[in-house]
Design a binder for these strands. Structure first.
Length: 299
DNA sequence: CCATGACCCTGTAAGC
DNA sequence: TGCTTACAGGGTCATG
């Protein structure tokens, strides 16, 4: 989610208020087929607002439709402003400038836009094609199948200890699995759950319900965890997300939160905890790697 | 209700 | 060096 928010912040100044003058769709599908008549439905539209819900980007268009874009694991948008492209020279509106350098093998969608910062080319690249795009009506967006069962955002006031207490009460599933559940917290991914649990000193394998008192009230540990999740997410967004293999910002630069990982991807390395010389372990939970310190993270 | 595994697809890195 | 295998940030569905 910090990666998606970073993309949103990169695109917004260029795209909000921009008109889409031309659309080049280079293949029929990503993870799913593009919507029918996708290119023609976008052409001529104005982008009113660029939003985000969980890990979805939401392009609100001027005809009461919303373009939903999910980056999957390897999707990225690149912006090339005509004004900063030495070679674009006399590129005409509606013509496609070929971005310099990089191969365009996985450039699947190219938009020519005229926006507040001038004419530009926006390119969607996705090597693994785990991303997808959909078009839907702006009315009833919250009831859209992709959003209807989403939980609260990990930023903002909705994520509170009482809320988590209510949602985790009675759950015997592992704490880590419960926090990854998008119907509880929408947008919290594997990296940030691992990091938050380490910082909060909580075991990923503990039953989720152990953070809830009998009366359904949060324990002190749950209060800590809630604050920690929010802090980790905010730090990661401020750092421009984490760049492992695939995540690239809209200007081609990399996020740098990965340099602050305490446990993620550190299997076999010494735990970063003060005075702890244990080794970071990796286990598999719900099909995903969990990294944690068995000594610092308690049940 | 819960856990696990499979699937979508490609690229990278580690291991032999 | 070259081949093979494991693994990757996610979402959804089937199965036990």
């Amino acid at each position: 989610m910090p990666e998606v928010e970073t993309v949103r912040r990169g695109l917004a100044p260029v795209l909000e208020g921009a008109q889409i003058n031309a659309v080049e769709q280079r293949r029929p599908d990503l993870r799913f087929p593009f919507p029918t008549d996708f290119a023609s439905r976008l052409t001529g539209r104005r982008v009113l607002r660029l939003g985000r819900r969980a890990k979805y980007l939401l392009f609100t268009l001027d005809d009461d439709t919303v373009l939903i874009s999910h980056l999957g694991m390897s999707g990225s948008f690149r912006i090339l402003l005509d004004s900063e492209d030495d070679e674009a020279g006399g590129t005409m509106p509606g013509a496609f400038a070929q971005p310099r350098g990089k191969s365009s093998l996985h450039d699947h969608l190219v938009l020519r836009i005229e926006g507040p910062l001038g004419p530009a080319t926006i390119t969607y690249n996705d090597p693994r094609r785990f991303g997808f795009m959909e078009l839907t009506c702006v009315d009833g967006l919250d009831a859209h199948p992709r959003f209807a069962s989403l939980g609260v955002e990990p930023t903002g006031n909705e994520l509170s200890a009482p809320y988590l207490a209510q949602r985790l009460a009675g759950k015997s599933s592992p704490l880590k699995t419960a926090l990854m559940d998008q119907s509880i917290i929408a947008g919290l991914g594997n990296i940030y759950v691992c990091e938050a649990l380490w910082r909060a000193g909580l075991s990923p394998t503990a039953p989720a319900k152990r953070l809830v008192r009998k009366a359904g009230r949060p324990t002190a540990r749950l209060e800590t965890l809630t604050a920690t999740i929010r802090a980790v997410i905010h730090e990661a967004i401020a750092a421009g997300g984490s760049s492992l293999r695939d995540h690239i910002r809209t200007d081609g630069s990399l996020g740098y939160f990965q340099h602050r990982f305490s446990v993620y991807g550190r299997e076999g390395e010494p735990c970063a905890g003060a005075g702890c010389n244990n080794t970071v372990r990796r286990i598999s939970q719900a099909g995903r790697s969990t990294f944690y310190c068995p000594r610092c993270q308690k049940h």
